[in-house]
Simulated scan of single mutants.
Amino acid sequence: MSLRALRTLLAIAQHGSFVRAAEAVHLTQSAVSLQVKSLEDDFNTHLFDRSRRVPVLTDAGHVAVERAREIIALYDGIAAEIGGDSELRGRLKIGAIHTALAGCLPAALAALGTEHPHLRLTIASGMSAELAARVETGELDVAITTELVKPHPYGLVSTALYEEGFWIVAPQAYAGQDLQALLAQQPFIRFDRRAWAGRTIERELRRMRLRVQTSMELDSQEAIIQMVAGGLGMSVIPLAWAQVQRLTGLVCAPFGTPQTTRRVVLLEREDRALGRLAAALAHAVSAHAPTR
């Protein structure tokens, strides 16, 4: 049994096929099959039901995946534990929402890298719900997301980092007008309601008894900003304070009275195998969190 074979097993469980797993771990499909066969020989059992078109984990396979996840997490955490009292070592796979990437995260990562030069960081972006699921499956070690919104994956814990606001954004032509009142009159470009932020916006619109005229529904803040800048409507989106300051060609106003906010947190699994690394990241982000 090898760690590489266990990582391959996790990739198959995550991606749902040997072909996609091979791409993810940079191996040929035949090499992936050989690694699975090696694990099955070691465990003396079948890990996949191959009678179906798409390989499906057997009961034993599900157990093997859970244990593999624990073993890999423990192994990846060794470097953090033996790197000395001050300097951290090891690898941390981080997921982050777009507002964090456009806000305080770059400065926080730069500071973390300067303080711990032997710490290897990889970054992936996405929406909160997607990132939480990737932490749950072990694809990511931690994720900077909004606070958990039901339904959400179980077995996760969060550390509060900072808060950010929801903002009404409108074309420059509406400068000086009551943007909140205009929401019910102008075409509304809606943030995807499958996203946690989209659900928060929808809930607040209902609380305010605002009936909006949805013209489109998008899952990208950048795309929404471009649509609004093109004069195609108004929107409500979460923005880091740094993003608000950089907006050009648009006007914006706080959404809700008082302004609707969301808490940004660091998500990790309950086992906290990379606890020291995650704690260092949380400290760096909090130190560079937006204030105004």
Rank of each mutant, 00 (worst) to 15 (best):
M1V: 13
A5W: 03
A13D: 06
G16Q: 07
R20S: 07
A24C: 00
V25N: 05
Q35K: 12
V36N: 01
K37Y: 04
L39W: 04
E40R: 01
F43M: 15
S51D: 11
R53A: 13
P55V: 08
P55E: 11
L57A: 12
D59M: 05
D59A: 13
A60C: 04
V65N: 05
E70P: 01
I71Q: 07
D76V: 02
G77V: 01
I94F: 02
A96H: 05
T99S: 14
A100S: 15
G103M: 08
C104A: 14
L105V: 04
A110E: 13
L112P: 07
E130H: 08
A133Y: 07
E147M: 12
G155Q: 09
L161Y: 08
Y162A: 06
A173K: 11
L182Y: 04
A184W: 01
F188V: 11
R190G: 07
A195V: 07
W196K: 09
G198D: 02
I201S: 00
R203K: 13
E204R: 15
M208L: 15
Q221V: 13
I225T: 14
M227L: 09
L232F: 12
I237F: 02
I237D: 06
I237S: 09
V244R: 11
A253D: 14
T257L: 09
T261D: 06
R262C: 12
R262L: 15
L266N: 08
D271Y: 10
G275I: 12
R276F: 07
L277G: 13
A278H: 05
A284Q: 03
A284I: 02
A287F: 00
A287K: 09
